[in-house]
Structure formats: structure tokens, C-alpha cells
Design a binder for these strands. Sequence first.
DNA 1: TAAACAATTAGATAATTTTCTAAATAACAA
DNA 2: TTGTTATTTAGAAAATTATCTAATTGTTTA
Lengths: 92, 92
Amino acid sequence: MKMNLVYKALADPTRRDILNLLKNRDLTAGEIADHFRISKPSISHHLNLLKQADLVHAEKEGQYIHYSINTTVLQDVLTWLLSLQEGKGKRE
Amino acid sequence: MKMNLVYKALADPTRRDILNLLKNRDLTAGEIADHFRISKPSISHHLNLLKQADLVHAEKEGQYIHYSINTTVLQDVLTWLLSLQEGKGKRE
DNA sequence: TAAACAATTAGATAATTTTCTAAATAACAA
DNA sequence: TTGTTATTTAGAAAATTATCTAATTGTTTA
């Protein structure tokens, strides 16, 4: 897993908002786009980056594509952030 | 605190490496730069972004500037990441 | 089949980011 | 004071990213 893609994906506020939406429930691409003022193709692009980072999973069902969050890749981020905090401790 | 600056700061691998270095001990700008192949001004720029995100603190001592990590801003990131994971749970 | 709908892909542009070299600032040491 | 060292600032080029409209693909429905 290319962790850089994960950090890059998390760097954009629109994408973080998308993850916040998906935290509550799975949504189709259109439902996600409805929450934003930017165009559908732009949202599609953001979804693609989230997918490449493996932060979301896309499942096609008929003409819809259902997106769901995948938090497993966040574990490594969490671990790293905690390691930064722990390191700090040794100086105090 | 502008959290977007924090996420942006964490998105770059060089800056993440800098934080990894500072986890062990405080370092001067020059010592940090010595760990990388990119130019000092570029490192200086990265340090500035980290400082704006409040992820590092800079203290001038004579002609040197000592950089130290500040992990307090990471707490909000941590909390958000955990909230994403928890939300996931409710669907299982 | 034809029209409508959901979503993506293509291609372009604008904005942002990364990086560089050269120059400036500030502190130290001879 | 003059030269050296540590670091940043300025300004520009190159690379990446975010966004748009138009076109395409695939599915559903009349």
C-alpha cells in the first residue's frame, strides 16, 4: 500500500468531507456530489483519488456506484501519529 | 488553528521525514537539511510550512535555529481518524 | 429502439506546490 | 572590520492538483 496516496488524499478538505459523509452511511456518487457545489466530474475525480488510496470502496449496482469508507488503511496513519507523540515523551 | 494546514503539511513525504527526525531529538535547520538531498532553501520552505501548521516550534539561538516537534495539534487529527473508524463500526 | 439518467473519461485551464539558484540577513570569529 | 557560517527571502521554472465543460459509456425505462 502506497501510504503517500493516503496522506495526499487526506490533504484535501473536499475529500475529508466525503469521508465524513461516508462515515454515516454508504452513498452513491450522485448523492455524494449533491452535498457539494463543485461539479460532478470533480467529485468523481476526488472519489477516484480516495479509491486509489484505498480509503473508499466502490461497488457498481445497476447504473449506480455505491461508495463505502474503508478505514483499515487509517491504522498505519494512526500508528505513525502515535509514534510521533510517544517520541516526544522521552524528552520530558 | 487552521487544521487544513496540518493535513497539508502531513501530505508531503519530506515533511513527514522531518517530523520523524525531530521525534528523536531537536535539530538545527542545517542538521535537518543534511538528511536530505534537496537544497537548504527547499528544506527551509518545508520547515516554514510545518511551523505554520504548528507542527514544529523554532527557537533561535545565536546563528542557529533549533527546531522541535509539537504534537499537540496532532490530537485533533487523531480524534478525527478515530471518529471515522468508529462510524464504520455501526454498520457491522 | 429511443430518451433519460448515473457516472466517468477527456482535454483544457487555473491555481497551488515543489524545487532551484542567487541574494539578503544575522551572528560569529579572526 | 572582514570573512565565514547558518539560515532565510526572493523570484522563477517545473510539476502537480483542482476544477471546469463537453463527450462517452453503460443502464434503465417508456
